[in-house]
Design a protein around this nucleic acid. Structure first.
Lengths: 324, 324
DNA sequence: CCGGGTGATTGGAACGTTCAAGGTCCCGGT
DNA sequence: ACCGGGACCTTGAACGTTCCAATCACCCGG
């Protein structure tokens, strides 16, 4: 098998110089029409493809976005990130960008990997996920002047960097309103212990939709069995509950099991994340729309599809209530 | 900020030549101890990192494995692939390899992407997933002499390429044996319509474990609601059923809902894939162990961690029954 | 017919690394 | 004293692309 053709080979075949071929590929506008066509034909005939490494060496750009793959949590979530990564790959491809994965167990190791990738010129933009209050990664990336975008808010930090997030409060608010309207006034919330940024945000949404500004709040760890126990106890206690809004689908599944056991199989329950588990059982849930998040993230990273630029440096995606 | 140091800078600092620094990095064995230490110190002092593109240009290797990200199916599955990709990234990192994603909607488009990646030198090995009978990708890759491994059997084709798969039949066999032992002789199977390679394999495992060599077989599309309807009907008909073995967790969830509705909440049900949904509801399931698959795939692709070589070109991973 | 401008094209150099082909030094044997 | 050989190191070239400065072709007005 012959070695794959180079720029030079195409140039020879088309009767022009290397640079002209390069121009046809990278800035077709400056090449005269007939020349361009001749070159294009030669490219097609020879089946020429630019060699990424050579280009990258010269331009000092890799056209690659790196994204961290979180360790598999084993929980019910993960699907959101999965869809996000998929959408990112898809959309990045359209813009001629690649998506490279890296794994790391903790933030220290993550910064090590990032150093390798960035110094080695393997990636020129980064997407980080799961940000939290005082995240060291954002500071580090900003200090390096590396283009990056976070999937997750800075949570109170100075938000000098680009980020995209899902408006969790808006999601639980919509869920709560729907429950108030279709079920009754006593809409309880099943959430995680206070202190988690995301959890507190989702709780705030629920609270803000309540006419009285407050209601029954149940606390559970992120596990089906714990949620089941907590909800079972609440239902047994005789407290009036017309519907449940939950901080996650795991909690919602637990709540559902408790409701069925208590003979209240028709108790309206809304989960969060719209995972396959919620879909399987037929629970309503708040859908995060990861594809929109991915699209927004890319816009922030690369500019809104070749236009604007001074746009806002952050985007809050409105989630969607999926009723079942 | 000064430009990042090159090999030359390190060489100068350590008082040796470029090539010696290169040797310290790539084949430390051939450099004298004291020289090696001096160079290593210089590397650390300057914070030198090799430039991936330059290396790749010269060696014509990219140290990158490309893997296709399936379009998000929306079903209950996907987690297996997710864990597989994660494990692959992790293990590849240990061997100094990167994992690059690409997206494609169909096999035609996939081959187009692969052409780009391979001709452009962006990837030098491929992992394909979800193989099926007469898959065009394997033939194409084999014809190009590209190193690749498939997650999935060739299903009857000549298996001249490397592949790893999970022994589905062994999984359902184990599940069926457990059900026979702990529940009773009437172990039914809930599977997909005949004709799917994977589905037929899982059914064969169930059948092979039955003492009579046959039993009640229910057919359902891959959906919770369909499975629920099918199982509900079977239970209502009065046929004796002591336990259910299912071809997927979706089917198992549907079966579970039907069982609960029929007042048989304690009917033993075993799913397949051990997804979070099964875990959430507390159903037993067959775990695919994607981490092992990833490890085996890498061994086939890169050689078993620097040893052997004439090893078998395919691996069948034994799944594990997870009881709940 | 020439000077000047404009737009298209060219050829050499450079990006940072590894390969291939040497070079230098030292030691032991003759 | 000389030579062969091994261990270690160095030097120039090459990988395929894009940048840069220079050149060429062409047209227009004077």
């Amino acid at each position: 098998m012959a070695r794959s053709p180079r720029l030079e080979d195409v140039a020879l075949a088309a009767g022009v110089s290397r640079q002209t071929v390069s121009n046809v590929i990278n800035s077709p506008g400056i090449v005269r029409e007939d020349t361009r066509e001749r070159v294009s034909r030669a490219i097609a005939d020879l089946g020429y493809r630019p060699h990424a490494a050579a280009r990258s060496l010269r331009t000092r750009r890799s056209s690659t976005i790196a994204i961290h793959l979180d360790p598999y949590a084993g929980g019910i979530s993960g699907v959101v990130l999965d869809r996000f990564v998929h959408a990112l790959t898809d959309l990045a491809g359209v813009r001629g960008m690649r998506v490279l994965l890296y794994a790391a167990r903790d933030h220290r190791e993550e910064i090590g990997r990032l150093t390798e990738l960035l110094d080695g010129g393997e990636a020129d933009a980064i997407v980080i996920t799961g940000t939290f209050h005082g995240d060291p990664r954002t500071r580090w990336l900003a200090g390096r002047q590396t283009p990056f975008v976070a999937f997750g808010r800075p949570w109170g930090e100075d938000d000098h960097h680009a980020w995209v997030d899902v408006d969790g409060a808006a999601g639980t608010r919509a869920a709560t309103r729907w429950a108030l309207e279709s079920a009754g006034p006593e809409v309880a919330f099943v959430g995680w212990p206070s202190g988690s940024d995301t959890g507190d945000d989702r709780e705030a949404g629920w609270r803000s939709a309540l006419p009285t500004g407050d209601g029954l709040r149940l606390v559970s760890e992120e596990s089906v069995s714990d949620a089941r126990a907590v909800v079972a106890q609440a239902l047994a206690s005789g407290t009036a509950v017309d519907a449940l809004v939950c901080a996650s689908d795991s909690l919602a599944v637990g709540a559902h099991l408790a409701a069925v056991a208590a003979g209240r199989a028709d108790l309206p329950i809304v989960g969060f994340d719209n995972t396959p588990a919620a879909e399987a059982i037929g629970l309503s849930s708040v859908e995060q729309r990861p594809e929109r998040v991915a699209s927004a993230a890319l816009d922030l990273l690369l500019g809104p599809s070749e236009s604007s630029g001074g746009a806002s440096r952050h985007v809050l995606v409105e989630p969607q209530l999926v009723l079942r």
